[in-house]
Amino acid sequence: MTETAVTEQPEGIRLSPEQRRRQRGRSVAIAVALFALVGLFYLLTIAKLGGGVLAAKILGSS
């Protein structure tokens, strides 16, 4: 890394304030969607396991 690389603006696309705002909005939306997905998988797991999960026998003894 050169000495100037840290302080100089990188080359490439520079986002306008509006573009930054939208980028932030997208990031928040992705975060919300991921949390929602985690919540759905959690709920689904609970529903699939059912109420008697703690009393379930692991091996086939009756």
């Binding site: 939208r22 980028q23 909005g25 997208r26 928040v28 939306a29």
Partner: peptide
């Protein structure tokens, strides 16, 4: 075309 849309666009 850069990634420019708002979340609402998606």
């Amino acid at each position: 075309p850069i990634h420019d849309g708002a979340a609402g666009d998606y």
